[in-house]
C-alpha cells in the first residue's frame, strides 16, 4: 500500500511540475466578462445583474456574475482570481471604491478592460464608468420643487426639508450639490438639511423636525426606499395627502407604491437599463482600442454626458422623473418585480 502511494505521489508531483512549467495562457474562444457585484439583496442590484448578463451575452461575451456580498476583501480576491484564470473585461460595482484601486491597477496592467458601474473610482485609470449624474438629479429635484412651490404660493417661496444620506456617500453628496446649487438661486426658498449616517433613521429625523416645524412644504429624501416610513410619519402628524409633498430619488418600488397611493409626489428614478447599457454601448470600441470622445450621447432615449476625469471616461446619465403619470412604466426598475 505504501509503495503504491509513494509511486502515485511521485507521478503526481512530476506531472504537477510539468504542468506548472508548461502553463500557458489559454485563448478563450468566448471572451469572459465578469460582473463583480457588491451584493444581490436589493432590487437595483438584481436588475442590474439581469441586464448585465443580457447585454453581455448579446455582445458575444460569456458573462459570470460574482457576488462579493458586501465584503471588499472578497471582491478583491474575486477580481484577483478572475484575472488569474483569464478574463477579458471586468465590470465592477465596487464595495469600497478606495480599497478596490490596487487590484484594478493590477488588472489594468494585464490589459483587462475595467468598466465601473454605479460608482466613481478615483486613483486609477479605468476604461469606462457609467453612473447616475447625481448633480443633475439634484437639479431636476430642485426644478420640480420650484414648480410645486410656485403652484402652491404663486411664487417661488417655501420651506424644504432635505434629508441626506450618509455624508461619506458620493451619491448623496452629488445630489445635494446639484440641488443646493439650483435652489440657492431662489432667495425665498428655505432649505433645512439633515444627514442620516449610514442612511438610517430618515423617518425619525422627519418626525423630530415636524415636531418643531409646522411649516414644511416639501420633504426631499435622497433615497426613496423607505418612502412608506415617511408617509407614516406624516400620517402620524395628522397631515393629509398633498399637504406636504414628498420627493425622493432612486425609483424604489416602495416609492412607486406611495406615488400610486398619492402620498409621494414624485421621485427621480435611476435608469437601470440605460445605466447598464451605458457600459456596453462603448464596450466594442473600447475593445478595439478606440478612444471615446467626450460629449453628449443618446443612450436609450436618455441624454448622456461623457466626460474625462483623470483620463478615465465617465458617462453621466440623468434620472427619470417619475410621477403619477408614468408610475406604471414597465421600464422603471422599481416595476420590474422579480424579487
Amino acid at each position: 500500500m505504501n509503495r503504491i502511494k509513494a509511486i502515485l505521489m511521485i507521478v503526481f508531483i512530476v506531472s504537477s511540475l510539468v504542468i506548472i512549467v508548461s502553463s500557458k495562457k489559454k485563448d478563450n474562444k468566448t471572451p469572459i466578462l465578469c460582473y463583480m457585484t457588491s451584493g444581490l439583496t436589493n432590487g437595483f442590484n438584481i436588475q442590474s445583474t439581469k441586464y448585465m448578463e443580457k447585454f453581455g451575452e448579446k455582445l458575444g461575451y460569456k458573462v459570470k456574475i460574482l457576488n462579493a456580498n458586501r465584503s471588499a476583501e472578497k471582491q478583491i480576491q474575486q477580481i484577483e482570481t478572475a484575472i488569474s484564470t483569464g478574463v477579458s473585461a471586468l465590470v465592477i460595482k465596487a464595495v469600497d471604491n478606495k480599497l478596490i484601486v490596487d487590484v484594478i491597477k493590477k488588472a489594468k496592467k494585464k490589459g483587462i478592460k475595467i468598466l465601473i458601474y454605479d460608482n466613481i473610482i478615483d486613483g486609477c485609470q479605468t476604461d469606462m464608468t457609467s453612473v447616475l449624474d447625481t448633480e443633475k438629479v439634484g437639479e431636476m429635484v430642485a426644478d420640480e420643487c420650484i414648480r410645486v412651490l410656485t403652484n402652491k404660493y404663486r411664487k417661488a417661496q417655501g420651506n424644504i426639508f432635505q434629508i441626506m444620506g450618509d455624508l461619506g456617500d458620493m451619491y448623496s453628496i452629488g445630489i445635494a450639490k446639484g440641488f443646493n446649487n439650483k435652489i440657492k438661486k431662489y432667495k425665498d426658498v428655505k432649505v433645512i438639511t439633515k444627514d442620516t449616517p449610514h442612511w438610517e433613521g430618515q423617518d425619525k429625523i422627519l418626525d423630530l423636525e415636524l415636531n418643531k416645524n409646522k411649516n414644511i412644504d416639501i420633504v426631499f429624501m435622497h433615497s426613496d426606499s423607505h418612502m412608506t416610513l415617511l408617509t407614516n410619519v406624516l400620517k402620524k402628524h395628522k397631515y393629509k395627502q398633498g399637504d406636504i409633498k414628498l420627493i425622493g430619488t432612486d425609483g424604489d418600488p416602495d416609492a412607486l407604491k406611495e406615488i400610486r397611493s398619492g402620498w409621494c409626489h414624485a421621485t427621480i428614478g435611476v435608469p437601470v437599463v440605460s445605466q447598464v447599457w451605458g457600459i456596453f454601448n462603448f464596450l466594442k470600441s473600447i475593445e478595439n482600442g478606440k478612444t471615446i470622445k467626450s460629449g453628449n450621447y443618446l443612450i436609450r432615449d436618455l441624454n448622456c454626458k461623457l466626460v474625462y476625469k483623470n483620463k478615465s471616461p465617465i458617462s453621466y446619465l440623468p434620472g427619470i422623473v417619475i410621477t403619477k403619470d408614468n408610475v406604471d412604466d414597465k421600464t422603471l426598475w422599481g416595476n420590474m418585480h422579480e424579487f
Binding site: F12, I13, S15, I20, E80, S84
Partner: peptide
Amino acid sequence: FFLFLLFSVTIDGFSTRENYIN
C-alpha cells in the same frame, strides 16, 4: 496533488501560472 492535477486538466482557466501563484 491529485486535486491539483484534476483541476488543471479539467477546469478552464485553472492552469495558468498566475493562478498557481494565486
